[in-house]
Amino acid sequence: MYIISMTYVKPLTEIEEYLRLHREFLDIYYAREIFLASGPKNPRDGGVILASGKVSRAKLDEILAEDPFRQHGLARYDIVEFEPSKHHGALSGIL
């Protein structure tokens, strides 16, 4: 699994201009069961995406290159890969 932490590097006014396109990008990978959860940080200086381990790190990097936030230089991405050793039973089907 991956925890993707995005930090905005541009003002929120610029982020808002691409938010619809960013959400459309997210929807594509939710439909493919790659992304599991996402949302803004609090305070709103970026966002977090939880991604399944169904793809390699190299493939995840390719996917994230499609994000309009990345394409327009709006956010920096920090990625943590981990292998869950424990989880709630409700997550069994997606891990």
Rank of each mutant, 00 (worst) to 15 (best):
K10A: 15
A37I: 04
K10L: 05
V9A: 00
E14F: 00
S38R: 10
F25R: 07
A37E: 07
I34S: 02
G39K: 09
P40Y: 11
R32S: 04
E14M: 03
E33Q: 07
D27S: 15
A31P: 00
F25K: 08
P40A: 15
S5Y: 06
G39M: 09
L36Y: 01
G47P: 05
Y18I: 02
T7L: 02
E33L: 03
F35Y: 13
K41L: 13
Y29Q: 06
E33N: 12
D45I: 11
I3D: 02
T13H: 06
L21T: 03
R23H: 14
I34V: 12
E14A: 02
R20I: 08
P40F: 12
D45C: 02
L21S: 14
G39A: 10
Y29I: 03
K10P: 02
I4W: 05
R20D: 15
R23M: 14
I4E: 05
D27F: 14
G47H: 11
A31Q: 13
Y18V: 02
I15E: 09
H22V: 05
L21F: 10
L26N: 13
S38Q: 09
M6G: 13
E24I: 12
Y18G: 01
K10Y: 02
H22I: 03
L21A: 15
R23N: 15
I4R: 06
L19V: 10
Y18R: 11
P40G: 15
G46K: 03
P43K: 06
L12K: 06
P43H: 10
H22S: 10
I34K: 00
E14V: 00
I34C: 01
A31N: 13
T13F: 04
M6D: 03
L19D: 09
I28P: 00
A37S: 11
F25D: 08
I28C: 09
T7S: 11
I3N: 04
L21Q: 15
I4F: 04
L36A: 04
G46E: 04
R32F: 00
Y18L: 12
H22E: 07
E24M: 12
F35T: 06
L12I: 09
I28W: 01
I28A: 10
I15T: 06
R23W: 11
I28K: 15
E33F: 01
V9H: 01
R20A: 15
E16F: 05
S38T: 15
S38N: 14
F25W: 14
L36F: 00
E14W: 00
V9F: 00
R32W: 00
K41Q: 13
D45N: 12
G39Q: 11
I34A: 01
K10R: 15
R20V: 12
E14C: 00
P43D: 04
P40L: 14
I3T: 05
E16G: 01
V9K: 10
S38W: 11
R32N: 04
Y18N: 05
S5M: 08
K41M: 08
N42I: 14
L26D: 08
I15R: 06
Y18K: 12
Y8S: 05
D27C: 05
E16A: 14
Y30F: 15
Y8C: 02
H22W: 09
P43T: 03
E33P: 00
L21P: 00
E24H: 09
L26Q: 13
G46S: 04
F35A: 09
E24V: 07
L12E: 10
N42R: 13
L21K: 13
R20W: 05
E16N: 11
G39P: 10
E33K: 10
E33H: 11
S38G: 08
